[in-house]
Design a protein around this nucleic acid. Sequence first.
DNA 1: GTGGTCTAGACCACA
DNA 2: GTGGTCTAGACCACG
Lengths: 132, 132, 132, 132
Amino acid sequence: MKIDPGSHVPIYLQIAAEIRSAVAAEVYRPGEALPSLRNMAIELQVNPNTVQRAYDELVRDGLIYPQRGKGLFVADQGTTSAQNGALDVVRKLFEEGVRAGRAAGVSADQMREIFAASIAAPANRGATSHDQ
Amino acid sequence: MKIDPGSHVPIYLQIAAEIRSAVAAEVYRPGEALPSLRNMAIELQVNPNTVQRAYDELVRDGLIYPQRGKGLFVADQGTTSAQNGALDVVRKLFEEGVRAGRAAGVSADQMREIFAASIAAPANRGATSHDQ
Amino acid sequence: MKIDPGSHVPIYLQIAAEIRSAVAAEVYRPGEALPSLRNMAIELQVNPNTVQRAYDELVRDGLIYPQRGKGLFVADQGTTSAQNGALDVVRKLFEEGVRAGRAAGVSADQMREIFAASIAAPANRGATSHDQ
Amino acid sequence: MKIDPGSHVPIYLQIAAEIRSAVAAEVYRPGEALPSLRNMAIELQVNPNTVQRAYDELVRDGLIYPQRGKGLFVADQGTTSAQNGALDVVRKLFEEGVRAGRAAGVSADQMREIFAASIAAPANRGATSHDQ
DNA sequence: GTGGTCTAGACCACA
DNA sequence: GTGGTCTAGACCACG
């Protein structure tokens, strides 16, 4: 789980997205507790408040829920909900790419080629950091 | 050419991107002049300063160049340069989508399916506005 | 007697309120003993410490009193005191509702209508959980 | 517009509720700008971050929307949406009061009496502060 | 120990 | 000037 402090995307959203992915990939399962705010903050080298904000985001989405004095837990529908969310993100990015390509006159075949290359590439450290 | 004032993407970058696309699609050809700063500002309903920043961006990229007292002109290599830039944008978005999908455990086949749907969809409504 | 762990209202206050209601409704009568701390904790599925705090609250109010080694007993004036307390709670909630309505420009007639609907509704599902 | 720092209700929620009321009562109308974060913070004697959080809440509700570098504006559906929200709040409080009364054995007639007294009382500084 | 709120003060991008 | 993010550090209630 890595954060890019130089990105234009706010850190707290990056964290939220990372956790969402982790929930979708069942790294954290429904009923399980997430790392505590403080531990997560130490691990990610950020301020606990920033992690808090990320967790807030997920709580509002209903992906996780807090239990007073105990911790934050993955909701029952968390896994499927996160998986659906992930599909949405993928779809949005692909659609945006297609849209941008079309606007610039890129042919559908060219785009298919680019996509094939993207998905064929090994997952070896992508860090494509779409923004900045 | 439309701007989304509600997006998280800065307006000046939206404008720059739009112009880049237009140059790539040869709406503006090398040697041609871009709309004047104030005309563009009026058309887009934004502050001239904002258009200025967009033009600055493109000048820095070498896509266009200013001619004292005359206006801004598309550079000779502008078209090809913008086209290459567009390919880069497309590639980045696709790679980002693939990366996000992988992190959430989405299979390659699922992603191929989503992509096929994206590229098959008619270009009617644009503005999928990936970011807010 | 049910507890909502997801509410913003502290569990120990929820418990205290429930017991207060029970005393007011004469489920527990003066001189009678309340369920033991640990039995109550088991029944409510909460930490005994939490029940303890609830009992503390009620002792402070003079609604119940402890008898060394025997348990907690409802005070002589417990029933009437709890009934008065309940009236206060009801009054406070109504006043708060009226105040909030007024601030938002809701007319008195509209509020009367809403109130009539509230009190006419059957007592089936409880737990309207005003707070989260 | 007044804040009670001693309440158990977080300040930022108090502020959000106050603004909601103000929007419902058309103190701020659709298209109008709210007081800036800093000005509001000064007026309420709280930290700008706290006001920010309150505004965030309202933005998420769609009651207001931010415009980069310009300010925060009341949304078109803001007034009606806030009015509906206010009715919900009133309803919830009344229902909660009725529920609490019933649980404690308060008769419907007694509650009607209490309600009548609440709504008959002049709006002269209520400050009934339902919580703490 | 946990999450939640608040302050103080800083820095940034945007218009 | 505006809103938005982040840090540092404090305090609180809860279990």
